[in-house]
Design a protein around this nucleic acid. Structure first.
Lengths: 111, 111
DNA sequence: CGAGTTTACCTAGATCGTCTAGGTATACAC
DNA sequence: GTGTATACCTAGACGATCTAGGTAAACTCG
């Protein structure tokens, strides 16, 4: 049904998650939903990508997890950005900006 | 020595190659060099990524290869964009634009 | 009340693209 | 004639995402 439009996500997912949490703690499901919402579904994060990514980030000390209750009163694991995660976010944003500009230069050039 | 700055390349390499060849036939080595040059090395394509990518694209009928001689008189394989490759390029450029805009929206948002 | 849907999480294995790290051969510089 | 740059090739490792399953609880609605 939905189109898995992109292998492009590769390498950017971590940054997207970190940025989402920069607004404050959120549980996993909400992160994916939010990313889809604000990008008009240009970014669709599958759960099989999402949860492993969250563990990875937690294991690296970039996120801190805590069990709680969602807005709808279901059990949910809330993730918060650590200071290490904040630093990582800044670096990744820079990398992205540089890379995206480079790719755009090439792809959008009239040539 | 050089920094392999990015897993971000994932998924965009095909488009970058196609676009490079949109300017006219080039041999593999020259494609990688040109991408590095015009992007100030923000995009660095390793040979171990480059050649497999070229085969992939050729196998799919997006490129056509022909042996010849380089500017420096060494044997070199020149790749040219096919019409199928041209069409693919256009689609990939669109996909990139959409995706990059979405990522930028998220990452650059003040939030 | 009970069936179906949504929320929310989890995970093994497949897939696929890139990178590492080797290798060959030729041309030119010195 | 030794070293460097050009130009290509490839096996295997690696790593991130996706597929496709699964669980459990809460709400919806007849």
């Amino acid at each position: 049904m939905t189109h898995h439009r992109t292998k492009l996500l590769h390498g950017t997912l971590d940054a997207l998650i970190l940025k989402t949490l920069h607004q404050g703690p959120r549980h996993g499901y909400a992160i994916a939903r939010w990313l889809g919402d604000v990008t008009n579904d240009a970014i669709q994060v599958e759960e099989g990508s999402l949860y492993p990514a969250l563990y990875r980030l937690e294991r690296k000390g970039l996120l801190q997890a805590e069990w709680g209750r969602s807005e709808l009163d279901r059990r949910a694991k809330f993730y918060a950005l650590t200071s290490k995660g904040q630093a990582k976010l800044e670096k990744e944003v820079q990398d992205w900006a540089r890379f995206a500009e480079a790719v755009s230069t090439v792809l959008m050039g009239e040539a």
